[in-house]
Each structure stands twice: as C-alpha cells, then as structure tokens.
Design a protein around this nucleic acid. Structure first.
Lengths: 261, 261
DNA sequence: GGCTTTCGGTTTGTTATTTGAACCGATGGT
DNA sequence: ACCATCGGTTCAAATAACAAACCGAAAGCC
C-alpha cells in the first residue's frame, strides 16, 4: 500500500464515537510505526486535514474537509439532493429512512431521517459501516455489483451479528440472486435482532449501483401490509433519487419496479 | 515536500470553476510528472477522494470527503453553527456577508449569505482564496496572527489587484497595526475596485484567530451611516459566532468591541 | 486517408523518501 | 522513587517514488 493510502486511511479511524485520537493510539489502530504515523499526521495537519487540540495534543479532523465537501456537493449534489426525498420517505412510512453510499468498497451511511410517528424508532447515529451480508442495504448493493466484487466480499469472513444472520456464502449467493430478481432487498433481524429493514439499490449516470436507500423498522411493526407500504414508498423514492442524481435505472430494474408499484 | 502533501495538494486544484481535471492538466497545474500524478490520483481514487467520470476519464472530487465533513461538523460545528448568524447579518445589513477560515495558512471562504435588499450585490461564488493584503477579512486575520506568520505573508510578492491595493509591506504593517488597535478591518476597493468591505476576526477556544467574518458592499452604498451600522452588526455577529464556536475573545478585543458597540 | 498532437496510462532503472527500532524528556499513576 | 506511557526525534537500512521514454487510442487538420 502506498504512503498516500496510509495517510488517508488514518482519517478513517476518526468516527463519531472516537473523534479524538492520540498519536500512539492511532499508530496502534493503523498498525503503523509511531514515527511513520507522526510524519503522516504532521503532513495531514499541514494541509488542514487534521488538527491538534488541547494539552494532550490529540488529533481530530481538520477544516479542509469542509471546503472539499462543499465543492463536491456543488458539483454532484448527492446528499443535498437526496435529503428531502429521504425525509419524506421517513414521514410517509413512519419509520427510519437512511441512505448509504459505496465508498472505496465500503458501504457507509451518508444520511438518515427519522419519523415522529412512533416513540420507538431505529437509531443509527453511530453506525459507521454497513456489513454487506447482514443488512438490506448491503444485499441490495451487492446484488447489483460486478461478480468480482461479490466474490471478494463473500470470500472474507462474515460476522454472525445476530442469531439469524446469514453467513453461509452459498446461501448468501442464493439470497442475492433472489434480490436481483425482485429489485429490492429485505433483512429480518440480520443486523440487530429486533430490526427489520428493506432497501433498494441506487444508480449513477453510468447505470452502476453506487448506494442504497433503506427503511428500517422494529420487527414487531413489520406486518405484511406495512411491508407492502414500505416497499411501494421505497421504489418511488429510489426512482426519484436516482433521477435527481442524474442516474439511469438499468432497464430490468425499471421494469421490475414499475410492475411492483 | 512529502508525498502525502503532494497528493493532498492535488485536491486543491479542484474548484467551482474547474470541477473536472484531466490527468495531463492536473500534472501541469501541480508541476508534477505525469506518472507521479497518475499514481497519486489512483491512490486518491482507491480511497474515494477522487473519482473518474465520463469517457474522457477526467477526475473530480469523490464521495469520501462528504463523510469526513459530516464527521467534522458533528464534532466542531463550524459552518452549521455560524450559518444562521451569517444569514441574519446579511439581512440586517442588506449586504453580502461571508465567513472565511484560515486553513493551512490560506484564507478561504467557507460560507456566504446574500441579502435581497438591493438588486446589485457583491457575489463571491467563485472566490477560492482571499488575499491577506487586499481584503478586509485578510487584514483582520493577519492583525491577530503571530508576528512570524505576518512576516511570512508580507515577504511574499503582493499582487496589485486594483489601483488602490496597498502592496508596500511597510504601509501594510502600519495598516495592520491600526486594525489591531480598532478590532476590525476595512477595505475600500483593494480587492475589486468598486467593492468596500469591513471584517472582524474570529477566535477559537485557545484564543487564536482562526477566521474572519465580513460584510461586502458596493462602494457607492458605503456612506458613513451605513459603515457605522455595518460595524455594529459585525461586532455583534462576530461575538456571537466566536461564542458558538466555543471560542474566547482575547480580553483586549472584548473591551474594544464593547466600547465600539 | 494520412499526418501530427495530445490524451490516459504503463514501463524502467535510478534515486530519494519512507521506514522502524531505539531513544528523549515530560507526565502521571502507584 | 519507580515504572509505564505519552508525544516527538534520530539515523541507517529498506522501499517506494521518480523522470523519461514509450504505448495505443482519439481528435484535429490537411
């Protein structure tokens, strides 16, 4: 791995739960030599990607990322464009809606919207990564990736997150094929035991699947009628976001979604 | 300069006016060998910091920056916290308000707000960098930096942007000392000949000046009464934003502002 | 159609940067 | 007084980055 990747990877260790990291800590996390790590952090710091704070000299993300993100959104309004649709999806379904993006081969939540309809709702403030095999978003994305990508994901160890998580590669392949045939994915307690969710893939301008849109609800609320309602709202919202992104639905998906709606 | 800095610098060549850049172009811009540049871009791409688009394989900023910016704002709500104040400042003064941040020794606009009061207003959609010597924001920030920083800035060539731009280092030093004594800065056509502006410095939690808040108006509208009104609104808004950032005004500035208000 | 330029991308041997272990002084807990 | 750990530094050894030349494809241009 190149030096640049090592430096950029350091940025990935900052999360909501761990916003400040000391030199020794981050060196351990990244499995890098402390001196190397120091040099990388210094260089990141000189460019405003991290900054040091307080007397303990811990590092945190710097202001440079703000400028870049603003620029990216100005060019490709991914988040801003999707946000209203996401909010209306949450309100329509009365459940938690969230949108995730495939970034550097990892599926990451980008935005979420909650509904006020129920006192109990699925929260995902601190989720950093969505496992492909255990979430509806992951399955939806996986179903529309090149075979090579799927193989790479299924070749890695698959965590048994709950008692119902599917971890058998062969079984997952069958499941994914099914998702591809339906045009949407469903997960019943595969990520957290009492959460059910449904997701649809989202596509970019070249027809590649670049993310997923999902609705997550307590399993106890997921009756057949509710499921049908959510599926309908998801297909609508998925079409809308893909359109807003200037994306194109693959013809077969477009057909599937039209029939299901 | 280290490899990491070179890679990060590449990201800085993307601007609103130049959102897509080809390999050869960016190599020329950065004055790097094409092979080197290619490797850096590839590595940035693998981490989602840039992506290639279209048949011409040009590069643009990738989605990774979104995630990092969201994280940064969650930890240090710089932009989100300041935005409402900025908007109210624009509305109050009837002119264009903008906020800039000192990032890696460069003063960059982070956000701006327009007023609907006049059909003619100062636009700064495409401004990427604010020259320290020729803008009120620049002077305000410069006045409250360590001496070494000031020296470094004044040692570089200073562009004569308009007929009234001050470029003489000695004269600028006197001007900056004056700004330090007043607690705010003013520029009359130093950046664009028909634009006058006033700015106040903003401070972080350690009392370091980390940015500036400014109001820019057409010079023809900048009478004495208008200037007094804008100065008052600026001091209020500057205090407010510094407070929102968890920053502390240096005692002398706090006194100056109290007296001026 | 053929000539030239420029594009994104690749290859190569040489060179300079990155690396890791050991080392500092400071700090804090026992 | 001791030990562990912190952020940061040093320097020889190892590795990754570099520049130049090259490639096929596409785009002007005659």
């Amino acid at each position: 791995m190149g030096t640049v990747s090592k430096a950029l990877e350091l940025l990935d260790y900052f999360t909501k739960a761990r916003p400040l990291i000391g030199l020794s800590d981050i060196a351990r996390l990244a499995d890098l030599n402390k001196a190397t790590c120091f040099r990388l952090l210094t260089e990141l710091g000189e460019n405003g990607f991290v900054e040091q704070v307080g007397t303990s000299r811990e590092y945190r993300l710097g202001p440079s990322v703000l400028r870049l993100a603003a620029l990216r959104e100005a060019q490709v309004p991914t988040r801003d464009a999707a946000m209203p649709v996401l909010q209306s999806l949450a309100q329509q379904t009365g459940e938690t809606a969230h949108l995730s993006l495939l970034i550097a081969d990892i599926l990451r939540p980008l935005a979420h919207a909650y509904s006020a309809a129920h006192a109990t709702k699925v929260m995902l403030e601190d989720t950093e990564t969505l496992p492909f095999h255990a979430t509806s978003s992951g399955l939806a994305v996986l179903a529309f990736q090149p075979e090579a990508f799927r193989n790479a994901v299924l070749a890695k160890p698959l965590a048994q997150l709950t008692s119902t998580t599917l971890t058998n590669p062969a079984a997952l392949r069958a499941r994914i094929a099914e998702v591809r045939g339906l045009g949407y994915a469903e997960s019943r307690g595969g990520y957290e035991s009492d959460v059910h969710s449904m997701a649809v893939p989202l596509f970019d301008a070249l027809g590649r699947c670049s993310g997923a849109l999902a609705v997550a609800a307590l399993g106890t609320r997921m009756g057949e009628a509710q499921r049908r309602m959510i599926r309908y709202a998801l297909l609508q919202a998925g079409t809308e976001i893909t359109t807003l992104w200037g994306g194109t639905l693959p013809a077969d998906i477009a057909t599937l979604w039209r029939l299901a709606a």
